[in-house]
Design a binder for these strands. Sequence first.
RNA 1: GCCGGAGUGGCGAAAUUGGUAUACGCACCAGACUCAAAAUCUGGCGAGGUCACACUCAUGUCGGUUCGAGUCCGACCUCCGGCACCA
Length: 862
Amino acid sequence: MNEKYFPEAIEKKWQQRWEQQRAFEARENDPRPKFYALEMLPYPSGYLHMGHVRNYAIGDALAWYKRLQGFNVLHPIGWDSFGQPAEQAAIKRGVNPRDWTEENIAHMRGQMKRLGISYDWSREIAAHRPDYYKWDQWFFLKMFERGLAYKKTSQVNWCPKESTVLSNEQSSGGVCWRCGTAVEKRDLDQWFLRITDYAEQLVKDIDEIESGWPEKVLKRQRDWVGRSEGAYIDFAEKNSDKKIRVFTTRIDTIFGATAIVLSTEHPLLAELLAGSTLQADVFRFAEKVKAARLAKQDPTAEEAKKGINTGALAINPFNGESLPVWVANYVLMDYGAGAVMSVPAHDERDFEFAQKYTLPIRQVIAPVSHDQARAEPMAATGGDQSQMMHQAFTDYGVLINSGQWGGKLSEDAIREMAEYAEAKGFGGAAVTYRIRDWGISRQRFWGAPIPIIYCDNCGMVPVPMADLPVVLPATAEFTGAGQSPLAGVAEFVNTTCPKCKRAARRETDTMDTFVDSSWYFFRYCDPRNETAPFDPEIVKQWTPVDQYIGGDSHAVMHLIYTRFWTKFMRDLGLVSFNEPVKRLLTQGMVTNRVEGTEEWKAMSKSLGNGVDPDEMIEAFGADAARLFVLFAAPAENELRWIETGIEGAVRFLRRVWTIVWRWRDQLKAGSLGSQRSQDFSDAARRLRRKTHQMIARVTEDFEKLDLNTNVAALMELLNVLTDMQVRLDLNRDLPMGMTQEMLRGDLDAFGEAIETLVVMLAPFSPHIAEEMWEGLGHADGLLSGQRAWPVADPELARQEELEIPVQVNGKLRSRILAAPDVTEEQLRALALADEKVRALIDGHQVVKVIVVPQRLVNVVVK
RNA sequence: GCCGGAGUGGCGAAAUUGGUAUACGCACCAGACUCAAAAUCUGGCGAGGUCACACUCAUGUCGGUUCGAGUCCGACCUCCGGCACCA
């Protein structure tokens, strides 16, 4: 330790020492309790940005804290290294995606090391390496065996800019999640994973993680799965034996149905129209709708409702009424049954449709008047049918014009009518989900090849497990056109059929990279396993993840996939739990002012408001940069980058450094931390109290991951230490009333506080903490290897004297001093005796006195 | 449109979950050191008011509950996210 704080030198020093001593390598079969701290693995785009720094600083603070507390901590990192940007670089600049990716990884790894993040580098993995993606393929085949991976032709989301398919999750909002381009619809032959089989579990198991995940993420997970309870009903077509099934959440409105409306893609359509004179018109209409959908410029824009009558009739099984069967553009084939019963009076869309085509609007639900709701439901408006409806009434209410169900409340009718339908055999209660199967085919080169072979004799044949991995060829021709570059690599495509050994062709689509990231944190546990994705016994020692940290941009995509994958692995017997992540923290964005504007936006190259972590490290040191990003705002909040803020962080570190440097010899020589002295001065007792209060506070805040207030506590402790330091100086000549023992006590208290500060600083700024720890005479080993986290002594932390606020009629008027064990009675008496209080209550009648023990007194007067 | 979340000094933010509002930091002001500046150290810093106290007002707005409300309830305003015809 030198007199001056030079971050560069000490950061390099400790980074080397940590590496030499393998300080952060986690080992299995350790008797200590485990802790799995995980940050979302980065895409190797080339450079770290401040968002990464924030992510890793949060995770590392937690890893350090747990390590210092004596946990066996697993803190790994890897690379989500398959994906579009590498291929774009190949298309634009002719570089090989693999070289580009490897170079980026090398550079970013260097940046991470310069930040001094305590990763276990021995477990580093990268998705683009065959020893990793082999297991993506293995999982795919396991799903294929179980019918969970399948191929079908369907309308998919197509990003025209990247020439590839996107999953529903990746085209949420109608735009590509990566480049923001509006997606188009295309008909393509695609591979899907049956995530819908797990829809119910994806909703239900939220119970298990409810307490550990942010509410907003859980909400989005629930919304995405879109569980909806309702009923299905079969309407018999009048002139055939066909049944038209509809799904509704409002079976109670069925007496108000005035049409059945099918999606243009409904499979029954052709049969219903067979021989009809309207056939040609309806088909033409369906084609037009489809064309409009494919050509839509803004996919989120709603189109005007359009429809056409098919001439067919369907019979309402509840009242035998014949309803016209229509086809319309607003009914979606891939939700519910692809057909709806149109109830214009009680559904806004149906209302709009009915108005346009002058279909009858029949009210069957009336608002309920509240006083009568309980005893005997009654229509508040009387339900006059002749009344014109100006808009749909979509609330629950009382059934009217509904035969035997009239007078019932919607809630009851929904249940009873579904039971009735089931008893009569034409329907029943049902649950539908909004979530669709996960389309994983990508017409790209830089991904894991889908291990399927097409044979003219045997059809679709899975690659035998023993032949994995299906290795990506070294290169291909990158044109950016809408076909996988793999299709142009003859050596790759041409193969032999595993079954009949005749010539066959490989699947040329690759997998969505979200497959790679769905299970990577299990691989960290056993990263070099060559015979399985991982050994379940080893994984059991580390998982589930105790704390996961990442941006909320993955609130739906990655997190729903990885939950799905975990459930599948559970079904394979690889893991024994339902949910992979116990606690999740979604960090806020790091923003910076966009030059020339008042706007704060996420740092980005295109906006020119990026801040380079390397420059920050060079100018202020990694310790200061990390400290600042943790201190500046709560982890979930947006973090606005302010240059003077990081200067403040350096200032704090320098102040700590200076005080440690100044006192290190005396503290080394003294009874540092042993608290041998029995006689403490008032000032020393005050310092010890503060020290132990801060230990308690920082420890608590760590459990809540309130890192910003944590740093504030460290600053407070330093402020108190600084005051004490002045005192120690003045007392060098042992003034009156001060014994040698007391001076020694002062030094003890001081040493305890300093050591506490150094240890508690380590999770935020580890290099300087190691250096100061060494400077304080701990030559025996790394701070990172110690179980050094202090434990608060409640006795010492307790106030010796309380300052109790006294209110008169709820307004603060005075403060009184009292011992901590003061009784309520005493407090009351003290408050009433207080001069200021007496002046105020003089001439008034004291109505009552409220005493909150140890807290406050409120005198109520009239 | 529907569903969430949030509004506290000039700024980032605290507040033991109903009990001293504004901790900690940034910025700013003053002083010390310096020939001077930077750095550093010390002090000040919600608004009004006062020589200084006292006092009054202040947690988006308006009401309510309570001895007591940033915190609970109701209505409204503003901002930020999410979803997009989901039957």
